[in-house]
Amino acid sequence: MKEDIIIKSRGLQKWYGDFHVLKGIDIEIKKGEVVVILGPSGSGKSTFIRTLNHLEEHQKGELFVNNIEMNHNIKNINKIRSEVGMVFQSFNLFPHYTVLQNIMLAPVWVKKVSKEAALEAAMTLLKRVGIEDQAHKYPGQLSGGQQQRVAIARSLAMKPEIMLFDEPTSALDPEMIKEVLDVMIELAHSNMTLLVVTHEIAFAKAVADRIVFFDEGVIIEQGTPDQIFNNPKEDRTKLFLSQILDH
């Protein structure tokens, strides 16, 4: 494997019972690349990015994340998870901890960082996502946009190499989408590897190095934003783009 390839999957397949969700995904993603995954509902986008940190298990094919093979070995899984952060559609903050505790919890308990160091890092991250004044509130007291920014900060606190985003703005009111996208744009420019499932075309056009189009468990087509949005080759891509651009 080449040095700068950080995610590599070959013939990746997955079933939910009889239902064939991923029908052989081949992809190589370079370090620092920003990849936006598009595709209709139910095409397996979430399932795919969730196999990358073993929230879902693939059944066939091979998957390497940061040169570590994803298999049943719990050590490998843990190593991979420590390199991969994830941001969910529904934020999934821990409601019984304050914003600060949410961010400090994993560094302190998983990475065994000292409390002081974790606190300092957490405050820096909160400043970076622009909500240091909410540090002592509980997630339930924040707006959706603020919660999602806390969730991003929480993932960044583990200093991951890769960040996965699964429709991070889909649960947000329109006026809050921008504040979250701004944070993500800043991340995209920071040389971190990002995989983003989203319907935010403007975001994709602005920062994506590559667009990957999923349908029915396979990658139909991929390329630069210019290739995909202006010259899609496949009919299914065209159809999908016409549907979402009409909105």
């Binding site: 940190n53 073993h54 998870r81 994830m86 969910f88 999934n92 409601p95 998983v110 583990m158």
Partner: peptide, 28 residues
């Protein structure tokens, strides 16, 4: 279920997830 997912994604092991994240909420 998403609370478990968030915990596992942050690399908490099963015991930590249970004690730090799941049980306090369940008991509450």
């Amino acid at each position: 279920k998403t609370q478990y997912e968030a915990a596992y994604a942050m690399n908490f092991n099963k015991f930590q997830s249970m004690v730090l994240i799941i049980l306090p909420q369940v008991i509450k």
